[in-house]
């Protein structure tokens, strides 16, 4: 049970002292005690500090953007994803390999779009519902000249973290596609090696007549 607060007499002396102290400080006459400053800063630093997370290989995680393409689930490192946008219109570019779907206009920027089903030479089955474009980029390879293009996807599933150790080498996947995969997770998510794909000469169309 709490007691009702007892009304105390106002300590006018104390109030005047504090007002004086404050006005002194405002006038700039106040000098902080160096020892006090030091302990205060130290205390604050300790409060704000976050313990160093010493991740071991087993704990290292990778953030993946999971998407669906031709009834299969793929993941791609979100560090390489610039944005995802809906595919509403595209312009096919003649005289390009079939894996180049065409170009799209993203806020005035022209971006080419790659159909990785064709690039991976996967058999084409069914009628696709390709409605999303994942724009991937990497500017680490050639400074000042980032590689950038869109990847076609049926739909985006989610963004999630996967333990790096949980990505196993692709054993049951063969063909061209296997070369561009980092591996497969336990639940069958094929993780694309975005760094390799973005640095790959085979994706680039550089052709003279």
């Amino acid at each position: 049970m709490q007691k009702p607060p007892v009304k105390e007499a106002i300590d006018w002396q104390d109030i005047h002292r504090r007002i004086d102290q404050l006005s002194n400080a405002i006038d700039g006459n106040w000098q902080a005690d160096p020892a006090h400053v030091h302990t205060t800063l130290n205390r604050r630093a300790r409060e704000l500090a976050v313990p160093l997370h010493n991740a071991t290989a087993a704990e290292q995680v990778m953030e993946l953007l999971e998407f669906s393409l031709a009834n299969e689930r793929y993941g791609i490192g979100s560090a390489f994803v610039r944005e995802v946008c809906p595919l509403t219109q595209f312009t096919p570019v003649p005289c390009t390999p079939s894996f180049v779907l065409g170009i799209i206009n993203v806020r005035g920027e022209i971006i080419s779009v790659v159909d990785i089903r064709k690039f991976f030479a996967l058999p084409e089955t069914g009628l696709p519902d390709l409605n999303k474009i994942i724009i991937v980029y990497n500017d680490a390879v050639a400074p000042g000249k980032p590689m950038l293009f869109g990847i076609l996807a049926d739909f985006i599933v989610e963004v999630r973290e996967v333990a790096v150790a949980a990505i196993q080498p692709p054993s049951n996947i063969t063909g061209i596609r296997a070369d561009y995969l980092l591996g497969v997770t336990a639940n069958g998510l094929a993780v694309i090696d975005a760094e390799k794909l973005l640095a790959d000469k085979a994706v680039i169309v550089d052709e003279n007549v």
Partner: peptide
Amino acid sequence: LGPQLPRV
């Protein structure tokens, strides 16, 4: 046409 299509 973007960095992926330097020369078409």
